[in-house]
């Protein structure tokens, strides 16, 4: 499921907005590996923008290793660079942990208490 919401007020070029939102959808798992994206001309029509703008977004995404364009078949999500996705996920984990540390500081938890809590949660989750 892919949603793309364009704005004319952000000052960000349209092709950048499309790229950003497709990338976000990939990172969020809304678009799966191998999933087909709308055709360039279909997406241009749906968004009421030019074909060239859409082409540019798709070409950039291909160069960055998020999608692959297969002539005559269409554009598919493909993680040519799995590290990219893993890196993004690692950053998400770091951010969540940092947020937990800030909250612990506010609650005046000690390091030991925080670690205890963390271990307990891991256990409850059957994390391996």
């Amino acid at each position: 499921m892919l949603n793309i919401i364009l704005t004319n007020t952000a000052g960000t070029p349209i092709y950048e907005q499309i790229k950003g939102q497709i990338k976000s959808a990939i990172f969020a798992g809304e678009l799966q590996d191998g999933e087909q994206l709308p055709s360039i001309r279909q997406l241009a029509k749906d968004l009421k923008i030019s074909v060239i703008t859409t082409m540019r977004a798709y070409t950039d995404l291909e160069q960055e290793g998020f999608v692959v364009n297969i002539q005559g078949k269409g554009c598919f999500v493909q993680f040519q660079n799995p590290d990219l996705l893993r890196e993004h996920k690692l950053r998400e984990v770091e951010e969540s942990l940092s947020a937990a540390i800030s909250a612990a500081r506010m609650a005046k938890l000690s390091e030991t208490e925080l670690l205890e809590m963390f271990k307990l949660l891991l256990k409850e989750d059957d994390f391996e």
């Binding site: 001309r41 279909q42 241009a44 029509k45 009421k48 074909v51």
Partner: peptide, 12 residues
């Protein structure tokens, strides 16, 4: 009109 033109141009 925009829709009609974009449908027309869906043929490359």
């Amino acid at each position: 009109l925009m829709e009609i033109l974009q449908t027309f141009i869906s043929d490359e």
